[in-house]
Simulated scan of single mutants.
Amino acid sequence: MSIKKNNLPTWLLSGMLTLAAPLCMAAEKEVTADQVVSALESTFGVHSGERRNHIKGTCATGEFVGSPEANTYTRSILFSGKPVSVIARFSLPGGNPEIPDTAKVPRGMALEFRLPDGSLQHMTMLNTPVFGAASPQTFLDNIIAKKPDPATGKPDPEKIKAFKASHPDSLPQSEFLAKNNPPVSWTNSSYFGIHTFKFVNRDNKTTLVRWRFVPKDGEKQMTDDELKSSPPKFLEQKLIERTISGPVQWDMILTIGIPGDPEDNPTLSWPSDRKEIKVGTLTITSAMPQKGAECEKINFDPLVMTDGIEPTSDPVLLFRSSAYAISFGKRLSGN
């Protein structure tokens, strides 16, 4: 199913109508996409024609072959068993283009699947199993807390401390990052879909799912010494060199939820005993700097989905689409 303005699926039309007005969040506060994008600009500055978030990235291309085993849960043609062209982007969060590759922050992998019928499927993932906010309000407050102090050029530690104390939903991701060093390369990391989604099969049966992509190169974290000694830029060159030596692959692992599993809160993990199945393999065959490459202009909106995959009412998932659209519009216009 193509995502067209005159043929929008009901769930997407409903989400867009909801996002057309300010979203009401906790504590009777309203957060709009404009506020979030403006906060990113205030904290990180404006870099004309560039993303407001995840500004530092690397492009890649390849293909995905989905497993028909997924057809029990979804009718999406993504899992037809036939190769699907993929445009990928690996990135670091925030609006600082000079953020060092050693920073203890999440790594991102965004994918655009270009399906045979002309439709698209987007997946935007992080290498942390949970997200750092249960609502747009927490995400906004986190950006504001990180704004550099003019006197030091760095975030005020007291403001960061106060933010964490007043936003317990930010702690699971923060604690994961504190306990786990970053991966040694883009290719030695798993990437998690973060949110819960709905798979709908040919009988219109809906199943709650989460997914992650697990590297066939294996997971490997940097040592403390490597964190101290590594240069500020190495991830891009490593990825380019790795793809030159041969294809890089990740297995797509689907976790099957049951009623009662958290579906609207991306900061909460599911129990570890949930059923898991392999539903496809992603293969990256080439990588390149993002400037002028195909991934640079793509707006990896996570609500771009094929028939058979739908969002939950997760407020962060639904909010991301409108924020992405504002950022996308600004960089397309050169602002």
Rank of each mutant, 00 (worst) to 15 (best):
A60R: 03
F90C: 08
G95Y: 01
M25D: 13
H122D: 13
F90H: 08
T223Q: 07
T285M: 02
G334D: 13
L332K: 13
L23T: 12
K146L: 14
R212S: 09
D261F: 01
I258M: 02
A39M: 10
F163M: 05
I309R: 06
L317R: 07
T128K: 05
F90M: 07
L208K: 00
S174Q: 13
H122E: 12
S229L: 14
P22M: 11
L140P: 01
A287Q: 03
L318Q: 11
G246F: 04
E219L: 08
L268W: 00
C295E: 09
S170E: 11
C295G: 15
K146E: 14
G153W: 01
K164G: 04
D251T: 11
D217N: 12
A162H: 06
G15A: 15
L115K: 03
N7C: 08
P155R: 02
Q173F: 01
L318D: 08
V105C: 09
K5E: 14
L235Y: 12
K278H: 10
P302E: 14
K238T: 12
R114V: 06
R75Y: 01
P150H: 04
D101Y: 05
T267F: 07
L40Y: 07
Q35L: 11
C24V: 12
G66A: 06
T32R: 03
A165Q: 15
E219I: 14
G15V: 12
E263A: 14
S229R: 11
C59L: 00
S190T: 14
P83H: 05
S286V: 02
P231K: 04
H167V: 09
A323Q: 10
P9H: 09
F197S: 04
I256D: 06
K275S: 10
S245Q: 15
I240S: 04
T207N: 05
L13M: 09
G45C: 07
S38D: 15
S229K: 14
G193W: 03
D101I: 04
T128S: 15
K159L: 05
G260V: 07
T283M: 04
V214M: 12
E175Y: 00
L268T: 10
G246R: 10
E219T: 13
